[in-house]
Design a protein around this nucleic acid. Structure first.
Lengths: 346, 346
DNA sequence: CCTTCAATTTGGAACGTTCCAAATTTTTCG
DNA sequence: CGAAAAATTTGGAACGTTCCAAATTGAAGG
């Protein structure tokens, strides 16, 4: 039992059950062809000998695999962690299993690890591209002719299926909300041009302004790192311009958290002194002081949809992109513009 | 090029380069035996034909694999996400690659997916057990005779190598800090007995009390879910007992966040009205209001150590458990006991 | 009992590697 | 130059499956 005994194979089972290896194989594949009685005998033998199916060998012969690559730019970000969980869940129930890579936004790591996954027989990829992913690489992996679904960030210039929330619509929704509250000078804070997500959200913001007949002041669009630090720095910049905004739509919740913090540092309060709106509705958004108004994206669902999309592609079914619904969640960080405290110069 | 051409194999390369498949194999394995000139020819051929190494086939023959199972109880928890990232990083640089499973604290999912990973040829496991993991299952996987390293939560009764922070020491440190501030009635909040981590931390807390000659009031140990909701509920319970504590050590940061929120709801302030200390120092701890005093655990490092431990085991090297260092980070949520506001009954 | 047809079962050749023992080529040196 | 030694290269048998075509068994019908 604890001896260094050779691994149990189908042949051993065949022997033990008094059938051929082909029959064992049929049983393993749940074939209808085999007689119930025989099946039972084979299953019993497997049990007795402690058989472990060797999928590697099977896949070698069959030229397929149930292994998929899951490449995530930043698992440390709860938003992407949630997506990863959604993907994993869907794959698991479909009998697939992901190889994981966290690229940490490093394109060269990304390239290395995706190559490794290919060598390990990944049958397709769920892919949240790192920020600097270039078109050359995109073409490279396209040439692999494996199904690939990009999640959140689509790559311009290649036609992978993609799954993403309705960034344009969400930003429009949020901006309309602010306009409805009476705001006229609304800023957009965070992100870098070249980031598709930033561009989409910014576009939705601009569309809402335009639809309301409000001027688009380029000075109100502040580029910043897409994280808390960016928000902190950006809100400072916004408050110090000559004619400061009364509201700010942040690229994402992390940026909004930073903005909240920046306000707090100045003795100002979000909602009263400056309306702040986030994007994503990550877990913490409900628990800041004040709680954050934000655009809710169901990232778990997004992950599941991505997985299903990839599975469809694997089956060769026709597929289309998926744009996830968004929903505005109004909390206390967004209020109407006030006249009292928010202008340092009065 | 885009034709449904058969996959390129070593044999094709051998042909193209005018050598035998054995030579190609040697090149692939970076052997010193092959002449530089030949190596170049082979590499060139690979390049020309677009060869992809089939590790599945290699592993079948070689009876090893660079694939490891990474089984995480809850990736949604930033603490474990960080560990996962640390593991993945270390594995990647060592040329290994993880299969991922998120069990969502469900032991039956856990059992299913670990079996699947075994069938896929996982050579070992990095394992953060789900909460209800029973000893029977532990013995089952032990019988697989694969190297397994448990992370964070060790399993009593089986001797897997394990990696965890110094929970006992950290809790002692935190409690000593509170005692040093002058607190005499210090509560412990959150977690369930049966959770090893809770037991360790609670033990450290009790040790510190005992060392300071303070009585151990069992009424000051409040079991609760190990998350924000548990903290919220628990702090309410603590404040309403006859002789309430002046300080509370929370099972982890999430619980502490809930406690902070509970205080805020009652118009009380952490640090002044009740000293609150967390455990883990997750990303948000520095950004609560007030910022949270907590025991910092370097989870990224923890993950890396776990990976290295598993790799050592794979190489058959002698190994031992790793207990990660902890460090007390004092922020504003813990102050000396006051006399004014924290007693509802004065 | 023989035939026919359906239901089961089965050998053996892949799948793309590695690894061993043996073969071949190259170098060294008396 | 020839022999011995060293450096390279090479066939072919695994590894544990699947899958096909063919063989065997069983049931039904005359």
């Amino acid at each position: 039992m604890s001896s260094p005994t050779r691994k149990v194979t189908m042949i051993d089972i065949a022997h033990e059950a008094g059938v051929s290896k082909s029959t064992v194989s049929l049983v393993l594949q749940g074939s209808e062809l085999v007689k119930d009685d025989t099946r039972d005998r084979v299953l019993a033998a497997m049990d007795r000998l402690g058989y472990v199916y060797n999928r590697g060998a099977a896949n070698l012969r069959r030229k397929t695999s149930e292994v998929l690559g899951m490449v995530i730019n930043d698992l440390t970000n709860p938003f992407f962690a949630e997506i990863a969980v959604g993907i994993e869940r869907a794959l698991q129930t479909a009998g697939f299993i992901p190889l994981l890579a966290n690229t940490g936004e490093d394109p060269s790591r990304q390239a290395r690890v995706m190559q490794a996954m290919r060598e390990h027989g990944a049958a397709g990829f769920l892919f949240c591209p790192a920020i600097g992913t270039d078109e050359g690489f995109a073409h490279e992996i396209m040439s692999w002719r494996l199904p690939i679904v990009t999640v959140m960030r689509r790559i311009p210039g290649v036609d992978f299926r993609s799954v993403a929330p309705d960034n344009v619509g969400g930003a429009r929704l949020a901006t309309e909300h602010l306009i409805g509250l009476g705001h006229r000078r609304i800023a957009f804070l965070g992100g870098r041009p070249g980031m598709v997500v930033m561009e989409d959200r910014c576009q939705g913001y601009q569309a809402a302004l335009a639809a309301a007949g409000l001027p688009a002041d380029p000075g109100l669009i502040v580029e910043e790192r897409p994280n808390r630090d960016g928000g902190l720095a950006g809100v400072g910049a916004l408050l110090s311009i000559a004619d400061p905004p009364t509201a700010v739509l942040c690229f994402n919740d992390a940026v909004a958290f930073g903005a909240l913090h920046g306000l707090w540092e100045r003795g100002l309060q979000a909602g009263r002194d400056l309306a702040v709106v986030g994007f994503d509705d990550i877990a913490n958004a409900a628990h800041t002081t004040p709680p954050l108004t934000t655009v809710a994206v169901s990232c778990r669902t997004l992950g599941e949809r991505a997985a299903h999309l990839l599975l469809s592609e694997l089956r060769g079914e026709p597929t289309g992109d998926h744009i996830g619904e968004v929903r505005l969640v109004v909390r206390a960080s967004s209020g109407p513009p006030g006249q009292d405290r928010y202008r340092p110069n009065t």
